[in-house]
Write a protein that binds this DNA or RNA. Structure first.
Length: 209
DNA sequence: CACCAGGTTGACC
DNA sequence: GGTCAACATGGT
């Protein structure tokens, strides 16, 4: 796999867009909920759903675990896939309530990642988002935008391959990981269409340095 | 009206 | 290992 200057790409994005300060949430459990709700969904809809859950006092493992799934469905309806998401959130909350949120997050990074992956509705990206933004541990989050952009640079690989590349090229730094992923999302939303990446010049130029 | 959004799952090859 | 339909609402 070619060695590109991912650090320079980061600096270019940061210079262009400024700090994104992800993840917006009051508590770490809210990050977990948001990570599931935002799957294939715009963040504005997630904000609405989180606000609904908050009004009903359901942003805690215990209460969410005990809430009726039908009520959760209503509250997260605006996020789409609302039946799966409601059921999965209920189940995930049960897990956190059983183990204890502190105990869950105190696990070593790799174990925590595996623990999250074992939950229904939590795949690679959601697991890593939880590890990085909720538990505050160093794991680089890959998403469809990242994959698309790397593809534009002639670098292809599956989720794990790309993640290994970023983690190998970059210093292990939680804040850098957090900011970088957020910047990629911001950049891609603004400049990079789904099919074509002709507008990806900002990144491709930075990668050549 | 078509397309996409800070994906995941289970079935299949 | 990879591919693909299902899952579903809301905004442009």
């Amino acid at each position: 796999m070619k060695c590109n200057n991912l650090k320079n790409v980061y600096n270019t994005l940061l210079n262009e867009f400024g700090h994104q300060n992800w993840w917006p949430a009051d508590t770490s459990f809210e990050v977990v909920i948001g990570a599931v709700l935002t799957q294939q969904t715009k963040w504005t809809n997630v904000e609405q759903a989180i606000s609904n859950l908050k009004e009903h006092g359901l942003l805690e493992p215990d209460t969410l675990a005990q809430a009726d799934v039908e009520l959760i469905e209503e509250l997260v309806h605006c996020c789409g896939f609302y039946r799966q998401k409601a059921s999965r959130l209920n189940n995930i909350a049960q897990y956190f309530a059983d183990i204890g949120i502190e105990n869950v997050f105190n696990a070593p990074t790799d174990k925590l990642r595996d623990d999250m992956l074992s939950l229904n509705g939590v795949g690679n990206e959601t697991a890593d988002s939880i590890v990085l933004y909720a538990a505050n541990k160093p794991k680089f989050v890959i998403d469809a935008y990242t994959t698309r952009i790397m593809d534009c640079l002639g670098i292809n690989g599956n989720y794990i391959k790309l993640q290994e590349l970023f983690e190998k090229e970059l210093p292990v730094n939680i804040d850098l990981y957090k900011e970088y992923h957020a910047l990629i999302v911001e950049y891609a939303k603004t400049y990079c269409g789904k099919k074509r990446c002709a507008e990806c010049l900002l990144i491709s130029d930075a990668a050549k340095v």
